[in-house]
């Protein structure tokens, strides 16, 4: 049985800001994947994932972001990540994800990107 995921959603102009709360792990990554897919299918072309309230993400959560970035790019859109704590930033760096999905310092930079 999957665990729930809490994601705050706000629009700043044309930009959709998603703020997942707590953990994205193997138990709730499928729900997060469906949510991002639905928003892209709804026509969102600039999505920011704000990591401010995220304490943990596993590789299954990172995979969701990779799939989302590929999908939105094929619609000429962009997915931007921001406000990562150091331990999360480290795994994005080890995996090389930060070279293919933009990671910026904070939400202001992500919305302006």
């Amino acid at each position: 049985m999957a665990n729930n995921i809490e994601v705050l959603e706000e629009h700043e102009g044309d930009v959709l800001v998603l703020t997942p709360v707590g953990r994205v792990d193997s138990s709730n990554a499928p729900l997060f994947e469906r949510m991002i897919k639905d928003r892209i299918d709804d026509g969102e072309t600039h999505i920011v994932v704000d990591f401010t309230k995220l304490s943990f993400i596993s590789s299954s959560g990172m995979r969701v972001l990779l799939i989302g970035a590929k999908s939105i790019r094929s619609n000429q859109g962009k997915l931007i990540l921001c406000s990562m704590r150091d331990s999360i930033r480290e795994i994005f760096s080890i995996s090389g994800f930060d070279t293919i999905i933009p990671v910026v310092k904070d939400r202001v930079a992500a919305v302006d990107a």
């Binding site: 596993s58 590789s59 299954s60 990172m62 995979r63 990779l66 799939i67 970035a69 590929k70 790019r73 795994i91 080890i94 995996s95 090389g96 070279t99 293919i100 999905i101």
Partner: peptide, 24 residues
């Protein structure tokens, strides 16, 4: 070893988790 270098469009998905475990 997973694919850690290719561009977004061609980046393979998978194998990453164990790579992180090994590296850390």
């Amino acid at each position: 070893e997973p694919d850690l270098t290719s561009e977004l469009e061609t980046r393979a998905i998978g194998g990453l988790g164990i790579h992180l475990v090994k590296t850390q």
